[in-house]
Design a protein around this nucleic acid. Structure first.
Lengths: 334, 334
DNA sequence: TTGTAAGCGTTATCAA
DNA sequence: TTGATAACGCTTACAA
């Protein structure tokens, strides 16, 4: 494989000139440029990217840290990231953590060692101080979770108000006894959605009953199990807010298993709007997250940091939208 | 940031010795090794990986080429790849092609330019000769598709016999008029599944009717639409083999929309066993692909190539398994 | 067992 | 506008 020196020799110029032709052709006289270009052509020369990365200490690669790529919501966000990244000549490295902190730390090491130019975090089971510190020194974007007081650049939705709106929908339909299946409460996102649930109830002067709040783990099974607990209650809830779609589906499965109907006997609203929520029966009424858009915006925010541009807005909050389908019915009075 | 020279100076050795301590510590006398290790510790030295990659012309990175990460079957395969890769110190670069040949070619360029040590193809809309040639010169594994005559290392299932088994299941249940919704017939995988369908019918002396074969594109919608065609027929099929689960679900949706029941009026068998097929109602009877396992094996095969080990077996065919759930019923006679 | 020193191929500084 | 040349930090013959 020909290298820059070969090209330089053939074109009767220095390697510096060849490099210039590649980097910024305007800095080179037309005539020499043509000469160099011909030599490049003739030798079928390709710059050695590894040498360039080494020399420039940049890699044109970013890392996406994600708990598990098998989780339904992430592929869409990653697709959004990838879209913007590839447009800008960046490559996307996959960083599955499998919920292991050690894995996460090793990815952070890669960032510190400049093996990647930046990092997008699609998870937040990390010490916030650590994220903040990291974001001070390196290009980092936190996506999907908005954390109050965190100074790191963030792309998120407003989980509190979105949850409030979801529950509000149930209340508007006439429900007064509304249960919630939360996500794992050690992550802020889950606590925020719970907060929204509480707020909505209180706004309507409905007491928040602790027995109507059950913690799930975002899995279909946990939705199923927690719903069973609700159905075992003396006074069962007439509506459920599930913190994500998988749990909502699990809950609905449990309702059906009890011989009850959704939405007639129990209404269920979900969160995320994953692809499958439309196919599920009854089609899920759910709070849609703009997953692709979040991915795109995250990458844009990261690119700005990598290029050293000032961030006019560090915290982006994107709009959610309630998608009304069949799992809550349309009007309880009918 | 300290570099190797700093460490060498502090430890009063040459950089060569420092390098040895890092590469193969046994080649260094205990005493000097300790000295060097202390210096490394004291300076908090981290080797510059980019320099190493450059020097060694390896990147410890592999690329996974995939049509779109949003497609349900790929995340599991990628997870399998990632599992083995990270165990072996390799990183996984995501290569979405979005079905654009140009994207694919640019990833191939990256491989040729040694920007990645190897590549796993999760798609086959590429010229086979090109794949073969590529596999001759670089570490490459083709996963998910077995192509006859292709010399490139492959991890796949036997699509023909798997499809045959799926259809056989329907025939065993007593069905004689079985329709098929195929995948896009420009990819070999789709043609193989169709072949299996044909073989199964012929084995039972059932004529293959062209009106009972409709081409879909693997999407839910196409399953829905093609099923509608079948239902419009004078003599509608009593059972359907859909070439993937999404289309099977679409087909079932269409059956229900006609006021008919699955499996009582029409039985449907799918292919893939995506996560959601269990949740869907009726739960899908489907031919399960060992997606995670395929990912793992692909990466193992790739690693061997990268290390220059001889491949005892270049073509791996993994077992599929019919998962019997509810969408076909259990015995038509009952 | 350790050191010397020559690369790897590019970019960037400085001078011409 | 171009050229000479010194890095960048590591690995690896080869020599000692």
């Amino acid at each position: 494989m020909a290298n820059m020196t070969d090209v330089a020799k053939l074109a009767n110029v220095s390697t510096a000139t060849v490099s210039r032709v590649i980097q910024n052709p305007e800095a080179v006289k037309e005539k020499t440029r043509v000469k160099v270009l011909q030599a490049i052509e003739e030798l079928n020369y390709q710059p050695n990217i590894l040498a360039r990365y080494f020399r420039r200490t940049e890699t044109k690669t970013i890392l996406v840290m994600v708990p598990s790529i098998m989780n339904n919501v992430f592929p869409q966000m990653i697709a959004g990231i990838d879209l913007v990244a590839s447009q800008s000549g960046y490559k996307v490295l996959l960083g599955n953590t499998y919920q292991e902190p050690d894995k996460a730390y090793s990815y952070i090491e890669e960032l510190k060692q400049k093996q990647v130019d930046g990092m997008i975090l699609l998870t937040t089971r990390l010490d916030y101080q650590m994220i903040s510190d990291l974001a001070n020194d390196y290009p980092v974007v936190l996506a999907s979770d908005y954390i109050e007081g965190l100074t790191a650049p963030t792309v998120a939705i407003d989980n509190i108000s979105s949850a409030r709106d979801a529950v509000e929908h149930l209340l508007q339909l006439g429900h007064r006894r509304v249960g919630m299946i939360t996500g794992p409460l050690d992550i802020p996102l889950s606590r925020d959605r719970l907060k929204g649930y509480r707020q909505s109830l209180l706004e309507h002067d409905i007491a928040v009953e602790s027995v109507l709040i059950q913690e799930g783990d975002h899995s279909f099974e946990s939705g199923y199990n927690q719903m069973n607990k609700f159905l075992a209650l003396d006074k069962t809830p007439t509506a459920i807010f599930a913190a994500n779609d998988s749990m909502a589906m699990g809950a609905i499965k449990a309702v059906k298993a009890h011989g009850l109907r959704v939405p007639e006997d129990v209404a269920v609203v979900g969160f995320d709007n994953i692809q499958f929520s439309e196919i599920f029966e009854p089609a899920l009424t759910t709070m849609a997250q703009p997953l692709l858009e979040m991915g795109k915006r995250s990458m844009e925010l990261l690119l700005k940091q990598i290029k050293g541009e000032p961030l006019t807005k560090k915290q982006l909050v994107l709009d959610t939208k309630l998608i009304i389908r069949d799992s809550c019915g349309y009007n309880k009075q009918v």
